[in-house]
Design a protein around this nucleic acid. Sequence first.
DNA 1: GCAAAATTTAGGATTAACCAAACATTTTTA
DNA 2: TAAAAATGTTTGGTTAATCCTAAATTTTGC
Lengths: 146, 146
Amino acid sequence: MGVKISATPKEGRYLTFMYRQQIEEGRRVTTTILAKSFKVNPATVTEILQKLAEKKLVEYTRYYGAGLTERGVVKAQKLLRKHRILEVLFVKFLRYDAEKACEEASKIDYYCSEDLINAICRTYEHPNRCPCNKIIFSDPKCRGQQ
Amino acid sequence: MGVKISATPKEGRYLTFMYRQQIEEGRRVTTTILAKSFKVNPATVTEILQKLAEKKLVEYTRYYGAGLTERGVVKAQKLLRKHRILEVLFVKFLRYDAEKACEEASKIDYYCSEDLINAICRTYEHPNRCPCNKIIFSDPKCRGQQ
DNA sequence: GCAAAATTTAGGATTAACCAAACATTTTTA
DNA sequence: TAAAAATGTTTGGTTAATCCTAAATTTTGC
């Protein structure tokens, strides 16, 4: 196995945002879009994109924008899996609506272990869609479907 | 209401540790004990205790040790409530053993909203003991028992 | 009362997130 | 197509959280 690639919490948010934009919605990811979404100065975005590029999680082209690398995609999917499994839990177990489930999941997804997520996943028999119908990526360690 | 007293994640750990030591086990809390428990240099402990003292969460006596203030106790109880409610969830819902439940709870307790914790609490009908039989403090906003 | 143990102080280091202002590049448009 | 507008980057900061070592101080145990 390679060296463990770690993203900070904020970097994680950038990765999942980029995944949704780029992969799920086929849109280009620009500095401005990120800056607006995260309500930060564009300079901050540039800095974080450069860090993510160093970590080989995104491919970054100055003045153009950034795209996830293969490793970035994997990382984003892992985070989105956590997020979406938590959403399932909150909706099914606590009867939260989808929006609130998303909010609460965002607060803790990054910090949840894969183990915990897999335990929840098993309990709900490996759901493959989150409450807003987005796909839940499977984890081989979870013995889920396909 | 007063100004919101915020503790950082690490400070939160110190508060709950101190609660367990001081209140639940009647032991004095010294710099050395904290340094050993958190595996850090004693100088680091001193620094954090001073910060907590500034925030009026602990009363700190140089060369002697520290004790939680009333505000510190309240804060610690809030954190312990989160921790223990999560433990209940993990044991009952995921069939984790008490130790693993504690471990996983520690990773996320700080980041969980009171709202989320209360929703879990309600679902389990306001448990007042965690899996290792420690008390779960009630939250008026949760409409629990005493 | 003195040496050993415990603790604090002083002075740093690192990392994550931010920002403003100046500068560079790209895009738009007249 | 050239300037203006929009966008993006660089430079040079800031703050906060955690952590450290070494020297100095205080307490404690014998």
